Structures are given as C-alpha cells and as structure tokens.
Amino acid sequence: MLIWFVDNTIPFLIGYFLISLSFRAFMEWKYKREKKDYILTLYSMFIYLFVLVIGFYLI
C-alpha cells in the first residue's frame, strides 16, 4: 500500500527488509540454534540490502 502513496519508497523497503529479516534471524538463532538457519537468513538479508542500495543509487 505504501508504494502507491509515497514517491520515494526505496528507504522504506530497505527499512522493512532490515527489520523483518533481522527479526527472523534473531528468532531462528534463539529457537533453532542447532540448524544454523539464521546464518542463511543473515546472508540473504545482506544480499537484499546490497541490491536495493545499489539499485537506489543507480536509478
């Protein structure tokens, strides 16, 4: 919904991905330490943020 009402949505998307994926990684770390899925979640968070930031500065 926010995409239609706000002109500059990239900072909101960056914030959304940062908060949601870091919360997910924290929960995976806290409750599933044996599987180490939180490492993959943190890796994907950095990839998403890198792509969004690069896309923000190139566009």
Rank of each mutant, 00 (worst) to 15 (best):
Tyr16Leu: 14
Leu18Tyr: 02
Ile14Ala: 04
Leu49Trp: 02
Ser44Gln: 11
Ile54Lys: 10
Thr9Gln: 06
Arg24Tyr: 13
Gly15Arg: 08
Ser20Met: 04
Leu13Ala: 07
Glu34Ser: 14
Leu58Pro: 03
Trp4Ala: 00
Phe56Cys: 07
Asp37Tyr: 12
Phe23Asn: 00
Phe5Leu: 07
Ile19Tyr: 11
Ile59Met: 12
Val51Ser: 12
Glu34Pro: 01
Asp7Asn: 09
Leu2Tyr: 15
Ile14Glu: 02
Leu52Tyr: 13
Thr9Trp: 13
Phe12Glu: 00
Gly55Leu: 07
Leu40Ala: 10
Val6Ile: 15
Glu34Leu: 14
Leu21Glu: 07
Val53Pro: 03
Tyr31Leu: 04
Leu49Cys: 10
Trp4Arg: 10
Leu18Asn: 05
Ile59His: 15
Leu58Glu: 06
Tyr43Phe: 11
Ile14His: 10
Ala25Ser: 09
Leu18Cys: 06
Asn8Val: 00
Ile39Trp: 12
Pro11Leu: 02
Tyr16Val: 08
Phe17Gln: 00
Leu2Ser: 05
Ser44Tyr: 08
Asp7Ser: 08
Met27Asn: 06
Met1Ala: 14
Tyr31Trp: 11
Met1Ile: 05
Met1Ser: 11
Phe46Cys: 06
Glu34Trp: 12
Phe23Glu: 13
Phe17Ala: 03
Ile19Cys: 06
Ile54Phe: 14
Ile19Asn: 04
Ser20His: 01
Leu42Ser: 09
Leu42Phe: 06
Tyr43Lys: 01
Ile3Cys: 11
Lys30Ser: 01
Phe17Met: 01
Phe46Tyr: 00
Arg33Glu: 03
Ser22Leu: 10
Phe50Gln: 02
Tyr16Met: 11
Tyr31Arg: 00
Tyr57Gln: 09
Lys32Phe: 07
Ala25Leu: 11
Trp29Cys: 02
Tyr38Ser: 05
Leu52Ile: 11
Phe50Asp: 03
Leu21Met: 15
Met1Gln: 12
Phe5Tyr: 11
Met45Glu: 09
Asp7Ala: 11
Ala25Asp: 03
Asp37Ile: 01
Leu58Met: 03
Gly55Glu: 10
Ile59Ser: 13
Phe23Val: 08
Ile59Gln: 13
Met1Asp: 12
Gly15Gln: 01
Leu18Trp: 09
Phe56Pro: 07
Phe46Val: 08
Thr41Cys: 00
Arg33Lys: 15
Asp7Gly: 04
Asn8Trp: 10
Ser20Asn: 04
Leu18Asp: 02
Ile19Trp: 13
Tyr38Leu: 07
Glu34Ile: 11
Ile19Gly: 04
Phe23Ser: 11
Leu58Val: 07
Val6Lys: 08
Leu13Glu: 14
Leu49Thr: 04
Trp29Arg: 01
Phe17Leu: 08
Lys30Pro: 04
Asp37Leu: 05
Tyr38Asn: 01
Glu34Gly: 07
Tyr57Asn: 08
Trp4Glu: 12
Leu2Arg: 09
Arg24Gln: 15
Ile14Ser: 11
Leu2Lys: 06
Ile59Gly: 15
Glu34Met: 01
Asn8Gln: 14
